[in-house]
Amino acid sequence: MIATMEYVDILDRSEQLGRMILDSDVMEAYNRSQQELDEDQHAQRLIQAFIDIKSHYEDVQRFGRYHPDYNAIMKEVRRVKREMDMNDKVASFKIAERNLQKLLDEISNYVAHSVSEQVKAPQDGAALSDSGCGCGSGGGCGCAS
């Protein structure tokens, strides 16, 4: 591809938009809440406990209801996740993360629609989330496919 002044201008404006996002209040709140979360030892222990039980959950999911520990692991995952989600630092971080994702989605939508109304833009963090597993069950597995 041959670089033209038009491409250079687009890249310059893209970098400027990126800097504006990085300098925004939303990004500042996100960074602050992430730092507070990283520094909170209790929150880190809750997160680690969730990561640990999640690995057991993934093992159980391979066999589904036929796994002997299915009910116990399912209850434990919900309990540990609820405990983690109820932590103030975790909750604050999730709110800041959602706000940043909303800003990025709005910008993506604006850019896409400035090109054409037919251009599809990711919404609700769809391009970045792990929730759309594509399992084909229509969300029956708990995913948001």
Rank of each mutant, 00 (worst) to 15 (best):
C143Y: 04
R32A: 14
A29Q: 11
I73R: 04
N71R: 10
G125H: 04
A29G: 05
A3D: 09
M27K: 11
R62Y: 03
E97A: 12
V77N: 02
E15Y: 10
R62V: 10
V26N: 05
Q123F: 05
L22R: 14
F50S: 04
G142P: 01
S108C: 11
S108G: 11
A144K: 11
C143Q: 03
S92V: 01
V80S: 02
E36W: 01
S145Q: 07
A121S: 13
C143A: 09
Q16M: 12
N87F: 00
F63H: 13
E117N: 12
F63P: 00
A121L: 01
M74E: 11
C143R: 06
T4M: 06
I47K: 08
S33T: 14
R98G: 11
R65S: 11
M27G: 02
D59A: 11
L22F: 10
A96I: 01
E83P: 00
L100Y: 05
E39M: 11
K120D: 07
G136C: 05
P122Y: 01
H42L: 08
K94T: 03
S14T: 13
D12K: 15
D40G: 04
A127V: 05
A96N: 03
A29R: 10
L17D: 04
R65A: 10
Q34L: 15
G64L: 04
T4E: 05
R82M: 03
K94G: 01
R65M: 05
E97R: 14
I2C: 08
I47S: 11
K89S: 08
R32L: 13
L11T: 13
Q44N: 08
L104V: 09
A121I: 01
E76I: 00
H113S: 09
V111S: 10
D52E: 12
H56Q: 12
G140W: 08
M74F: 04
I47V: 09
S14P: 00
G64W: 06
S92R: 13
A43W: 02
M86R: 11
E117M: 10
Q118F: 07
A144R: 12
D23R: 14
G142H: 00
L103G: 04
V90F: 02
A3K: 12
I53K: 04
C141T: 02
D9H: 15
V8A: 15
G64K: 06
A121G: 04
V115G: 05
E15V: 13
M27E: 11
C133V: 09
H42C: 02
E106W: 02
I10V: 15
V8D: 13
